[in-house]
């Protein structure tokens, strides 16, 4: 079949564009190390989270030098803990699950963003820098009160973080 020369050129440019797009994503994964939310965590029983070691008491805990784990429960219509207090210049892994319907977990203005599905645990790891207060919002419709579902992620100085954890329950 006859294909016009310009059309062949266009076709080649199109394929090149597609390969460049795929290449840029691959670079993002292997270079800067942007990992996708994946199936790394085992399923949980969303109706029995109060018996779950990690989610019966949603909290932030230190798991290594400058490494923290935040266990977060999303529900109609809020997040626990709230605020989520994490220290500056650290690596924080969020483990987020839902005890009722599907929610979203989005730290507004950043790329910390994941779906929260009942029965599954979303794992995302972020790097914090300077102390800032971020808004935490549910970005998936979850029922009539969806728009009031918000929380806070407070990145605080190391000193303030230690002050809080030694003084209370970390919330």
């Amino acid at each position: 079949m006859h294909i016009h020369a310009y059309e062949k050129l266009w076709l080649a440019a199109s394929v090149l564009l597609i390969l460049l797009l795929l290449g840029s994503v691959t670079y993002g994964a292997v270079g800067p190390g942007v990992a996708m939310v994946s199936d790394s965590e085992q399923p949980v029983d969303a109706t029995a989270l109060d018996e779950d070691e990690r989610f019966s008491e949603p909290r932030v805990e230190q798991v290594g030098e400058n490494e923290y784990a935040a266990y977060v429960v999303a529900f109609q219509f809020g997040f626990q803990p709230d605020p989520i207090v994490i220290p500056e210049d650290s690596t924080v892994t969020f483990y987020v699950t839902s005890r009722d319907v599907i929610h979203g977990f989005e730290v507004a203005g950043t790329n910390a963003n994941t779906m929260v599905v009942p029965g599954e645990v979303s794992e995302i790891t972020v790097e914090t820098d300077e102390p800032t207060e971020y808004g935490l919002i549910c970005n998936e419709y979850c029922g009539a009160g969806h728009h009031v579902m918000e929380g806070k992620v407070n990145v605080v100085s190391q000193a303030e973080y230690e002050n809080q954890t030694s003084g209370g329950d970390g919330e």
């Binding site: 971020y134 808004g135 419709y141």
Partner: peptide
């Protein structure tokens, strides 16, 4: 790009403001 969510009746929140 500012992080304003879709599918919500009231995209303004009490705890923070969009950049």
């Amino acid at each position: 790009i500012m992080g304003v969510p879709r599918r919500t009746a009231e995209p303004e929140y009490s705890g923070f403001e969009y950049a």
